[in-house]
Every structure is written in structure tokens, then in C-alpha cells.
Design a protein around this nucleic acid. Sequence first.
DNA 1: AGTACTGTAGCATACGTATGCAAATCTGAT
DNA 2: ATCAGATTTGCATACGTATGCTACAGTACT
Lengths: 356, 356
Amino acid sequence: MKEPRAVTSIDVARRAGVSQSAVSRAFTPGAAVSALTREKVIRAAHELAYRPNAIARTLSTRRSRIVGLVLSSLDNQLYPLVTEQLSRELQTHGLHVMLFFSDGRGVDSALTELLAYQLDGVVIASATVSSKLAEECSRAGIPVVMFNRSADHSANATSDNASSVTSDNCEAGRMAARFLIAGGHQRIAYIAGREDSSTNRDRERGIVETLRDAGMTLHRRVLGNYDRADAAEAARALVSVGDPPDAVIVASDHMALAVMDTLRFECAVRIPEDMSVVGFDDVPASSWPSYQLTTVAQSVGSMVRSTLSVLLDQMEPSSERVRRDVVVGCRLVVRTSARLALQATAIEQRVMGGER
Amino acid sequence: MKEPRAVTSIDVARRAGVSQSAVSRAFTPGAAVSALTREKVIRAAHELAYRPNAIARTLSTRRSRIVGLVLSSLDNQLYPLVTEQLSRELQTHGLHVMLFFSDGRGVDSALTELLAYQLDGVVIASATVSSKLAEECSRAGIPVVMFNRSADHSANATSDNASSVTSDNCEAGRMAARFLIAGGHQRIAYIAGREDSSTNRDRERGIVETLRDAGMTLHRRVLGNYDRADAAEAARALVSVGDPPDAVIVASDHMALAVMDTLRFECAVRIPEDMSVVGFDDVPASSWPSYQLTTVAQSVGSMVRSTLSVLLDQMEPSSERVRRDVVVGCRLVVRTSARLALQATAIEQRVMGGER
DNA sequence: AGTACTGTAGCATACGTATGCAAATCTGAT
DNA sequence: ATCAGATTTGCATACGTATGCTACAGTACT
């Protein structure tokens, strides 16, 4: 290897006429260095284009300033949003994101490589990830935040140390159901997400509860698995039999957009005249004029900030690492994909903006 | 710090009754260890739940197995695709992606932190990144690949070492223009991307050339800056004056979708009856039934594989690090947002699938 | 039995930075 | 000028792994 041999703190020390320790301290905020020494060091460093080696620093301090982000896919527009915002937030704190994609098949051998990188924290935003991963991280002393999903306390005997940041999905389900009920809908169907997802479970519970309280019951339930193709198939199933629903709640906007397309262009169903559609998440495309999807928005901003807060907190060496579960509020974004209470056909109220 | 003190190769060595070197070699493919020793080590490692410390390895080998991915945003659906595919491909080669978001304002102080992580390579998929960054990386001996953009050879006196992977954008522009000309369009407008983008420049050149060869000229040109809002504004501008175009080529699908929405829902323009729309990239939403956007597809798969190939090649210590510029072919995906040659109104041919 | 060779094991050190500790310097008050 | 106290400096070592080198054991051949 004839690499140009990177410039090290020793080179800088020599040039500045100080010790290597001095160089290190000059780059460590709050360290004991005189202003003069620091200035000499900074100058020399600048002349040599020196940059502290983050890897060596990690080895020494045992803090990598790297956070792992585990995803199963970026198909759902929600996750690019989360990825970008989380990454930017971390960046302002001098932290960086390393990406890990779960391979879908439960094994996730690739994910255990994650342990090798001395990560300062891990954010799991993938449903298909074995809870074993979270457990392994905890055992290794790495703070874990489950993003947009909570660990199943029930099934897991071992006290699970993973924190979580979720929306108030139960309430979100209620909001969706209440809105449709108020709109005079009689036959409300649900296209579910993955059965093993806490988000789906909570949203569905809120819906079912609210219907029951109104003396109603779920008209029909089909599985969409958070997948566009499955959701399209579910939409077909809903209209393929007699007595179709007059409204459908879809467990995510990602699916809801596919449902709208399928209903409109394959099934000649008018939205919302023939059928109302309500989703969850408020992804960017939901506000596009072609869809104008009424949806229960998750505040990605709040969720990301909460995640950051939990992580920074637990990264403190003095931290007690107690599990924290943050629940963020939702809000209904009314657009035109669902009939309103007052008007059956003439629809005008729209909400296009909103924090993201 | 009362961290549980991670288990190291020394612990494993002790338990297996061998030296630390033996442990290291047992985990190094192709190293000189007997099968017996390796087995003892593997067993001990397994019992202690040992995982080699990638950071320490990096310090020793000077190879981090981390690739930096520099993005300006994930808004455009193209980039989530790229991010996921690149990350997965790298993952299968034992490499990982670290994310960097440029802050838009040219300074990018955050990006130079990138140099600190001893990255094995950098992929720049951000238009707004100072070419200085690429230069700094090259100087540090880090292979750089510009993704979906090429460095301006012209303006840059310093021989730029950054490789690039792009589509054949000039040909892509020609394909779009030829298709519209064949469809009998007379007044073809162009909504441009950012002026400083090589991708925009090349696509536009292909379009203008082709029009000229057909004895035509660009009916109108408006700037869209690869931004949905700007593109919507551009669409309004196109129809706000007399003699509107009968076709518009939009420099990216990301913008084209906004253009379609604006034309249809704000301007009451029927697509393609009143105006044809053609885009570039073939992002996922372009194939959604609401849009059915005719577009010149970039083969994200090919581009990612090429990027990987260049990177792996240049990461070889023996590599000569000569710049490589890969140009990937495009293909026209005909859907229904633009009139075809044979039929003015009755449109039926569709292409929905295709490699991605 | 002696020689040459091959394959393994362990020792020692390097990678670049951070930091505890003791020594050195400075500050200001007497 | 002296000294206590505060500040700053440099030395030495630790962080966990990889690897050049030497030593040794085993094999095959003369």
C-alpha cells in the first residue's frame, strides 16, 4: 500500500511544536489547553489539512457517534421522510446515521453486523426485524428505540429494554372512525396492515372500539400487509361482492393511495361519492391533488425529535438506561377523499398544509 | 463508566487457550490457521458472544468498510430507491452506508466531517454539493463516484478524479423529443431542472438537437429547479399566456407529477388530449394509475451496480484509481400521459412494469 | 539420521487518539 | 522574594485488532 499516509495528530504536534496530547486537547471542547496552544495547534492543523480520525477516537473513547437505522424498505414515503429528518437532526449533534436494511426473511444475519460497529444507538423502523436484534443490542449496552412500533411486552418474558416512539395509534383509529361515522357512513370497512404490527393492532382497536360505542360493527376486514399490491387486491375484494362498504379505512396512506387508484381506475368507484377513503400517516403524496386523501397524520417531526431526545439521553454514560416509551399525538387532516358530515356530495373543505 | 466491558479477542484467546493472533486469524478469511485452532476459537467466541470490533479493525487495516452516501434530499422518489438498492448491494459485500445530507447552502461544513470517518468510498448523489468536496476526498485518497451527475470537466482546471455514473441523458432527451414529434406535437415546451445540473443540461441538449433536426424549435422553456412547487408554478406559466404548448417535457418525473396535477386540477387541462406530458426517471409514482406518466426510465438497478463496481474496483489497494465514467442506457416507457403517433385521442398502449 | 520445506503459532508492534497522572508553569497575594 | 493554588503540559498507556517476523513442529525426501 502506498497510501499517502494520512496526516495525524503527531504530525500536527511536531509542526506546532507541542505534544500530541496538546493536539488532542485542542480538538476536544472543554479540555485543559491554553488559548495560545490551541491557536498554534489549529494553525498547524489547518496548514496540514489535518482532520481528527473519528475511528481512532472511537476506539479510545468507546463512543462512535454513529447511530444505526434499521429499515425494511423505503417504499413507503413515510420512511424516506423519517430517514432524512433523523439524519439531519443527528447531524446537527455531530452524530451520523449508518443504514441497515433487513432482508425480510427473519434471519437477518446481516443485521448482527450492526453490533460490530460500536454504535452509540440503534433506531429500528422495520417491522420485519426479529425482536432478538433489539435484545442483543440491549445486552451489548446499546440504547435501542423502536420507531413507529412498540415491542410486544406480552409475548416477551425477558424484560425488554428497548424504548419506543409511536403515535397514539389507538386514538388515531378513533379519530378516523369518528370522522366517518359523523359523515353518515353506514358500512365501514378496514384494510389492515401486517397482523404482527403493533401500529396496525392499535389503530384497528381504536376503530373497532369507536364503532362498537356507536352501535356499529366493522362491515368488512381485509388484509393489506402494508403492501401496495396486497392493498389493491384488498380493494378489489371489497367491491367484488354484493353490499360493498360506503367507506374504507386503510391502515397506511401508502396502501390507501393504491386503494384509491384501484377503486377509481379499475372498479369505477367514485371517491368519495361512492366510497370514502381514510388513511393514516399523511405521507407527501396524500396531499397531491390527484389524491387529496383524508388521513390521520403522524407528526414525523415530533417523532424524530422524541427519538433524538431518547437517544441522546440514553447515550449519556451516566444514564440509567431505563426504557422510555413516548407517545406522540396525531391530528386528522381533512381533505376530499371522504364525505363530511354536512355535505354529502358538494365537497369543498380542504387542508393542504401542515407540519411535517 | 461502568460499561460491561465488551468481550475482546483477548478474552476469546484465553478461553480457547490460544494467542490473540490466532483469534484474529480465525476471523480473517484466508489467514494461516489450522482447522483445529479455528474451531476452538469459533467455539470460544460463540460461548462468549464475541463479535470482532469493526472499529478497531478499521484502525488496524485502514479500511472501514463504510461508504458515504451524500444526498441533498429524499423528496424525489428516485433517491429512496437508489439509497435502498445501493445499501442492500453494499451490504451483500460486507460494506455499509453512512448517510450525509448536504445543507443546501453551499458551505457544507457538515460534509467535511465525512473525511473523519476513513470512508472507503463516497457516492455523491446531491446536486448542491460543492465540487470542492469531491476534490477533498480525492486528495485524501478516497474513491468518489458522482451518481446521476457528472463533474464539470470544463470549469474545473484541476484534473478531477471523481468517477461518475450517469444515464445517457442526451439520448434520453432525444428519445423524449422524438416520441413527441412522432406523436404529431407542434409546440413542445420544456420545464428545466436546475441550471447547474449536468443531467438537466444533457437532457435539454438532446431535446433541442432533436427538435432542430426536425426543423422545430423549443416552443417555450421554464425553470422548475427539480422542485415540485417551482414545477407547478412553471406549469401555470405555460398555460397562462396565449398559444400554450401541446406537449411539455419535464426534466424529472418528480416535477412532472406536480405538473400533471397542476394542469389537471388547477388549469383544467386534459392530459394528453389538451397537452402531453413526458418526464424522466420513471419513479414509482409514475406508474401509478392516477398518473401513467410516459417517461424515459433510468435503470436504477444498472446504475447502482455500476456504482458498486467502480467503488469495489477503486477500493482495491492495488487499484490505479483512474477515473471511470459509466454511462447507462435509458429506455422509453410509454404510458398514457402523451399522445401516440397513431391515435390522437383513443389511447390504450400502456407499459406498467419494467426493471427497477 | 539429516536436510529442506511447508504450514502454524505466538510475540511484538502498529494503527491514531484520549486521558490519568505527575511535573512544570503561571497567577496573585503576602 | 516566597508560597499556595490554579492552570497547563507532556509522558505514558489504553483502546481492540491485524500482521511481519521468528520459532517451532511436522512432513517428505535423500
